[in-house]
């Protein structure tokens, strides 16, 4: 996160990440809800500092997939390895992965009974065992980074949607994660608040964070993504750089999807 100077400022997809190490490895991951197969042998490798945007129609399994990566959903077949730790039923592995993977949700899910500053500093204090003063200092720095230090003493219910989502990002960053997962983070926002959240995500991508982003924001995908994956019925139908994906899609399904949204 701190090596912002080493990354190129021109946007994600011009970077060469071939030498970077693997952060997330998924091998033939499958998941069923009852008889419905949500994920069908999904395999992918995500490199350090890479920004991957997952697109697809609703119900295609993209949210399920990224929720599997920090074990909010349990995959039934295949392997998921996050930063060399395999996700199994072993609680210690799950806790280790979760403390290294930050997640931001569509519905913000801030803790309504805690002030903004406590929302951000709670996990560092109790999970990372930081002294309270240090955790609060760090929380203030993060709130400054997402542009709302003046809201620190308020409760989430007193904030606008965009502000709440920025607090949620700060809360995830407070754990100093190596990977950030974004699950349709702008879908529940009013249009005028989408930009303020996307700007923060762009800056985060530029700072070298490994990111997986499920979104419907095509502009964001074009501008920031190193790689775009298109999902349909639990499978990755097509993947490639934004240029390839938006200009020369090979699959018919991708073309249909693009023609409907663009």
């Amino acid at each position: 996160m701190t090596d912002a100077t080493t990354t190129e400022p021109t946007g994600g997809h011009s970077r060469d990440l071939s030498g970077a190490r693997d952060m997330i490895v998924c091998e033939n991951v499958s998941k069923w809800y009852g008889d419905f197969q949500a994920l069908d042998e999904v395999s992918a490798t995500i490199k350090e500092q890479e920004v991957v945007v997952v697109l697809g129609p609703s119900g295609s399994g993209k949210s399920t997939w990224i929720r599997c990566i920090n074990r909010l959903e349990i995959h039934q077949e295949g392997r998921i390895v996050v930063d060399d730790v395999e996700l199994t039923n072993d609680l210690r592995n799950i806790e280790q992965v979760r403390s290294e993977v930050g997640m931001v949700f569509q519905q913000f899910n801030l803790f309504p009974h805690l002030k903004v500053i406590d929302n951000v500093s709670l996990a560092p204090i109790w999970v990372r065992k930081k002294p309270r003063s240090e955790a609060e200092e760090q929380a203030m720095a993060l709130l400054e980074r997402v542009g709302i230090p003046e809201q620190a003493q308020k409760y989430p219910g007193q904030l606008s949607g965009g502000q709440q989502q920025r607090v949620a990002i700060a809360r995830a960053l407070a754990m100093e994660p190596k990977i950030m997962l974004f699950d349709e983070v702008t879908s529940a926002l009013d249009p005028e608040m989408v930009k303020e959240v996307l700007d923060i995500m762009k800056a985060l991508a530029l700072s070298g964070m490994t990111m997986m982003v499920v979104t419907h924001e095509m502009g964001f995908a074009k501008e920031v993504a190193d790689r775009i994956m298109f999902m349909e019925e639990g499978q990755i139908v097509e993947e490639g750089t934004p240029t390839h994906f938006f200009e020369n899609p090979t699959e018919d399904r991708t073309k249909l999807f693009l023609s409907q949204i663009l």
Binding site: S99, F105, Q107, F111, A168, A172
Partner: peptide
């Protein structure tokens, strides 16, 4: 809500921490 549980889990809290700091304060109110 389920979202509260997930948010607490996603920042790496143990079940005990999640119960004490997130779930019980809201439930008791």
């Amino acid at each position: 809500t389920r979202g509260q549980h997930e948010a607490a889990e996603a920042v790496g809290m143990t079940t005990a921490q999640k119960t004490v700091f997130i779930v019980l304060p809201q439930a008791l109110r």
